[in-house]
Amino acid sequence: SRSVIRSIIKSSKLNIDHKDYLLDLLNDVKGSKDLKEFHKMLTAILA
């Protein structure tokens, strides 16, 4: 869910600018399909 993804971003080791950017992107995501794609992208970034 959106709140879980937000929590993953906030607890990541990324610097604050990257976190803010990803949180802004997350706010722009519409629909469950796009949310799944965003989660895939985030997982790849944090891997």
Rank of each mutant, 00 (worst) to 15 (best):
T43K: 12
G31V: 05
L26G: 00
T43H: 08
L42T: 02
K30P: 03
I45H: 04
A44D: 07
L25A: 06
L35M: 08
D34S: 12
K40L: 10
F38E: 01
I16T: 12
I45C: 04
I45Y: 10
H39F: 15
D20Q: 15
L14M: 04
L14P: 00
N27L: 07
R2Y: 12
K40Q: 09
R2I: 12
K19G: 01
K40H: 07
H39V: 15
T43S: 10
L23M: 07
L26W: 02
V29I: 12
S32K: 11
N15Q: 09
I16E: 13
L42Q: 00
G31T: 13
N15H: 13
K40R: 13
K40A: 09
D24P: 01
L25W: 07
G31K: 06
I8P: 00
I45T: 04
S11G: 10
I9P: 01
I16C: 06
A44I: 11
S11W: 09
D34K: 12
I5L: 14
D20P: 01
Y21K: 08
F38R: 00
A47S: 09
D20M: 15
K19E: 03
S7R: 12
L22W: 04
V29D: 02
S3Y: 08
T43Y: 13
D34N: 13
I16P: 14
K40N: 08
L35G: 01
L14R: 01
S1L: 15
L46K: 01
D34Y: 11
I8Q: 06
R6E: 13
K13D: 07
A47I: 09
R6I: 07
T43R: 14
K33G: 07
V4Q: 12
K40G: 05
D24W: 15
H39P: 01
D24E: 13
R2A: 09
S11K: 12
L46S: 01
D28S: 14
M41C: 06
R6P: 01
E37N: 12
I9F: 02
K19H: 02
K13V: 08
L22N: 00
V29P: 03
D17W: 13
N15T: 15
K10D: 05
H18S: 08
S3H: 11
I45A: 05
H39L: 14
D24S: 15
H39T: 10
A44S: 10
K36I: 12
V29Y: 06
L23D: 02
K36F: 14
H39C: 10
T43G: 07
L35R: 03
S7C: 08
L35K: 02
I9D: 00
K36V: 10
T43E: 07
L26A: 01
D20H: 15
F38M: 02
V4T: 08
K19N: 01
D24R: 15
D24T: 14
D20A: 15
L46W: 04
I16S: 14
D20L: 15
D24N: 14
S7P: 00
V29C: 09
K13E: 06
K33S: 07
I45V: 09
G31D: 10
D34L: 14
R2E: 05
E37T: 12
D28M: 13
N27Y: 06
A47C: 08
A44M: 14
N15P: 13
L25G: 02
I5S: 02
V4Y: 14
S11H: 13
N27R: 10
L23E: 03
K13H: 11
K19T: 03
S7E: 13
K10M: 15
D34C: 09
K36P: 03
K36N: 08
I16A: 14
L14E: 01
L26K: 01
A47R: 13
S7G: 09
L46Y: 02
I45L: 11
L35W: 05
K10A: 14
L26I: 03
D17E: 14
R2F: 15
S11A: 12
K33A: 11
I16H: 10
T43F: 14
N27I: 04
S7V: 07
V29N: 02
M41L: 07
D28E: 13
D17T: 11
I9V: 04
L25P: 00
L42E: 00
V4I: 10
L23V: 04
K13W: 11
S12M: 05
S12T: 03
I8S: 04
S3I: 07
A47H: 09
T43P: 02
S7T: 09
L25S: 03
L46M: 07
L22Y: 04
D24K: 15
E37P: 03
K10V: 12
N27A: 12
R2W: 13
K36E: 12
L42A: 02
I9E: 00
V4D: 07
D17G: 05
L25H: 03
S32D: 13
K30Y: 06
L22K: 00
M41H: 05
V29M: 08
M41A: 05
I5H: 01
G31H: 07
R6W: 05
H18C: 12
D17S: 11
M41T: 06
F38W: 03
M41V: 05
R6M: 14
S11Q: 11
